[in-house]
Nucleic acid binder design. Structure first.
Lengths: 223, 223
DNA sequence: CGAGTGTGATTGTTCAACAATAGCGCCGTC
DNA sequence: GACGGCGCTATTGTTGAACAATCACACTCG
């Protein structure tokens, strides 16, 4: 009911609802493990159950939400295994993208901007913004490979990762140290030494993974 | 992802319908460009429009089907650009998976079986089977990287690729020559020379891409 | 011959209903 | 008091009908 005031966009309500839920997820309004009741969420978003279920299908496909038949959909709880897997894939893709990239690739500009914004965010101690800029930096690295499908895949990975970040406190520790490392990767790449940039990036990712796993283990001792 | 977790007992009709449509797609019963009317397909599969729409969402997310708002869903018509992109990603992923793999990885057995089955299929001149075995071989290569997410990503790519294969006649030319090349890649890898195996694979993929593009251009002169 | 228009068909979305299932408390038995 | 079976209830799974919104197309009018 509150949705047909949808000004301008006017595109597929189902999609809009999906975006809305994504927003609630990254903003931490919906926390991992939480059950998403069809009637409750439908009421809250002002859409019918059927429309909501369509949106759920998309979200489930992206891994943000887990569908348990006859029991409902739950915000996906990232596991240690999934974090390990995501970082494995990131090393796999990002390092090679950097290695094979042309030094004059247009995405380089995006990398520069991301580093700059991450620096600005750190000044303001806005760790949420630092995290976003970090991901933008890595998305730009993937973009070096010039593949829409790879870009989409990475986009999905980063959404899952953001879910894991959302579970943790201590965002400063999680994002702060990496601004400088991004900078070094970028410098190495700009200097023409793609191989060295790739090695730095691999170190970077492994260290980031360890930090995240440690924070995860601390906040979720049960696991 | 926890696809397998809830595998055993729980099944949803929506999922089943999705699988059914996937089957119709790879079997060529539904051809690229064709419009999938909700009422017609719903009638044919014996499900309601709402259920069908849920299945469509999944298929659209996999790229097998394209959703045009207010106009319906259509079987995706692979473009030259998408074929090029898919092969770029395949080279990107498969070659590195091979390069980095442990020589004793369990997926090696799957590679052997796939080569064997492809050979048997060629004997019978069953090119459909040869194509499936080829894809199984390459899926096994990706499995060397030990990443569920990478496996899922490749699964999606191969479904899209199968769509392109389905548009073409001349399956013999498309699949026949590659049985021997698979064999050579496997032998190189088993002999411990992963680097050489990766290079062979790269050649393989580039040749396969050219063949596919040529056949595509021949069958779709308009494009 | 072209442009505006009306019409029909299809999609987008909601609603109400019912079947199927899982979780939970209750109860009786031992 | 512990345990296992039983039925209840809330929720999901699925359907069918209904209506609004939109598009494709033929049709009319200038």
């Amino acid at each position: 009911m509150n949705r047909q005031e949808a000004e301008g966009r006017g595109r597929a309500l189902g999609e809009t609802v999906g975006d809305e839920i994504r927003r609630l997820l990254v903003e931490g309004e919906l926390v991992p493990g939480q059950r998403l009741s069809e009637s409750a969420l439908g009421e809250r978003l002002g859409v019918s159950r059927n429309t909501l279920r369509e949106a759920f299908r998309s979200l489930a496909h992206e891994g943000l939400v887990t569908h348990r038949p006859n029991r409902g959909v739950f915000v996906t709880t990232p596991s240690l295994a999934s974090i390990v897997d995501i970082y494995r894939v990131r090393r796999f893709i990002e390092c090679q993208a950097l290695r094979e990239a042309l030094p004059s690739h247009p995405a380089l500009q995006r990398m520069r901007e991301a580093v700059e914004q991450a620096g600005a965010g750190r000044e303001r101690r806005d760790w949420q913004a630092v995290g976003s800029s970090n991901m933008a930096f890595h998305a730009a690295i993937v973009a070096l490979a010039d593949s829409p499908r790879l870009d989409a895949f990475f986009h999905q990975l980063s959404a899952e990762l953001r879910l894991a970040f959302g579970m943790l406190s201590d965002l400063e520790w999680l994002h702060g140290p990496y601004v400088a490392l991004n900078q070094r990767v970028l410098e190495a790449f700009e200097s023409g030494d793609a191989e060295r940039a790739a090695m730095l990036l691999e170190q970077y990712l492994s260290q980031s993974e360890r930090t995240l796993l440690a924070a995860y283990a601390r906040d979720n001792p049960a696991d």
